[in-house]
Structure formats: C-alpha cells, structure tokens
C-alpha cells in the first residue's frame, strides 16, 4: 500500500504529461457517491471490533480551486456507512473469549457510520476532448458513530453455566478517526459547466476508541472492563459523481 501512496504523490507533483494543454483553472464543486469493499474483507478475521467491516457506501461534497500549474487545493466533507461483517464479528468474539466448544450467539448491528471532512489536493492531467485524469490525495478527520452494542452469549455444553457480554464502542474524542485517501479520478465533460467524475481510491482510516465490556454470568456476578483499541481500516472505493465548474476557462488563444 505504501507503494500506491508513493505513486499517487509522485504523479501529483510530477510535471504535466501533456504540457500543450492549459490546465482548467476554474473553481470547481463536486458531488459524488462512493461504494467500496474493505481490504480486510479478504482476510479471515479482525483483531478489533471496528475492523469487522467489509463494505462501505457514502456521499461526498467537495470544493477546490486550482492554484499553481493546475495543482488544486480543496475541502471536502461526507458521510459514509460501513457495513459490519457478521461472521467477522462472531470470529472476533470467539477469539476474544477463547470460545472453542461452547455455544456462542452474537447479535450485532449491520452497520456504523463515519462522518468525514478534510483537505484535498489534486493535479489534473489533461487528455483529449476536455477529458482529464486527476490523481488526488485527501487527508482528514472523521467521526465514527452509531456503532450499536454487540450482545454476546456464551453457554457451556451440558451445563447451565453461561456468560453474557455487552460490547460498547465509546469514541474517545469527537473526531476519533484520522485517515488519508489516495486515488485517481477520470473527468469526462458533459457540458461547458458540468463534468462526470469516475474515481477509484484507497482509504486508510485509523479509528481510536474505548471498548467497554459489561459482563455477567449465571449467578448474576457482574463486571466491567475497558480497553483502548485502535485499528487501521483499509477500503477500496469506486465513486461516481458530477463536477461543476464556475468562471471562464482559459484557452491558449485567450491567455
């Protein structure tokens, strides 16, 4: 993944591929829906609860202004839903409590949400017919929320004894996720003002939170444990959206 980041940054700050085209210096606003799959979805399990995510879907708004030689700087914000992989949660719980021969039942929600905001830098590489290819890099902060409690029941075979757990994710801070996105966008013109954008990106989000465990057993003994967890969740995403550009475009003839 480091190579991918390096390649993205290198493309961003390299010289223009087709220098005969003037970069489009108009102010741009974008709207985009994304859908993705976690890199961890290909693995067997996760070592944390937040890592038990296999899919994502969301929407973003962004604004950007080309500043120097086509390199544009902007801001963006958006909302994403991370799908929770039920089997991964079950496997995580089984490993956490050393469940081998007991009966295990796990009840978890199907998703949690992440609000994201941050800064974006990209560099358009003009192609024919007003098309362009924009490698981009985003960094920002996010807020994970709506992670509903996970209910766990572990019961011994041939015995009345059981233990019940409620696992609760409590964010330590308002913004409990830091992340970067590296990707590339294809920009296709629809009209003078409107463009279609297709993107492929990799998002690495580092979640920080406190996992609170409320436990009880058959004889109603209760206990509470808290532990800090952090997890780097990688997601590959495809995006589809529109770019709206404002102002006059400069052509070689009207420099």
């Amino acid at each position: 993944m480091r190579q991918l980041v390096f390649l993205g940054v290198a493309l961003l700050f390299s010289g223009p591929l087709r220098s005969q085209h003037l970069p489009d210096s108009r102010f741009r606003a974008g709207i985009e829906v994304v859908s993705g799959i976690s890199a961890q979805a290909f693995n067997e399990g996760s070592r944390t609860l937040a890592g038990c995510s296999n899919t994502s879907a969301g929407a973003y708004l962004s604004m950007a202004r080309p500043l120097y030689q086509g390199v544009a700087l902007g801001f963006f914000g958006g909302y994403e839903v991370q799908g929770i992989h039920g089997n991964a949660v079950r496997q995580y719980v089984a490993e956490r409590y050393g469940v081998t021969n007991q009966y295990l039942s796990v009840l978890s929600a199907s998703h949690y949400s992440v609000w994201r905001m941050g800064a974006e830098v990209f560099r358009p590489f003009p192609l024919r017919r007003s098309r362009s290819l924009d490698p981009f890099l985003r960094i920002g902060l996010g807020s994970m929320s709506d992670f509903q409690d996970v209910q766990v029941r572990i019961k011994e075979r041939d015995d009345n004894y059981f233990e019940e757990y409620t696992l609760v994710i409590r964010p330590q801070h308002r913004f409990n996720a830091a992340y970067y996105v590296v990707g590339v966008r294809a920009i296709l013109p629809l009209s003078y003002l409107t463009y279609v954008r297709l993107s492929f990106s990799y998002t690495a989000t580092n979640f920080h939170y406190t996992l609170e465990e409320d436990g009880s057993n058959l004889t109603n003994q209760k206990w509470n444990r808290q532990e800090k967890q952090s997890y780097l969740l990688g997601t590959f995403q495809l995006g589809l959206g529109f770019d709206f550009r404002f102002g006059r475009r400069k052509f070689p003839g009207n420099r």
Binding site: Y103, S105, K155, R157, D158, D159, N160, Y161
Partner: peptide, 19 residues
C-alpha cells in the same frame, strides 16, 4: 439445558448441572 437453549427433557433423564 444441555443444549444452546432449554428444551423438553427426553427419556426422563437429564445431566444434573443442566437441569
């Protein structure tokens, strides 16, 4: 209660710690 949830007793016998 030897299984995952309490069930009707079969053959009028049960493991004591699962009663």
């Amino acid at each position: 209660n030897s299984g995952p949830v309490p069930a009707e007793m079969l053959h009028q016998q049960v493991l004591a710690k699962a009663l």
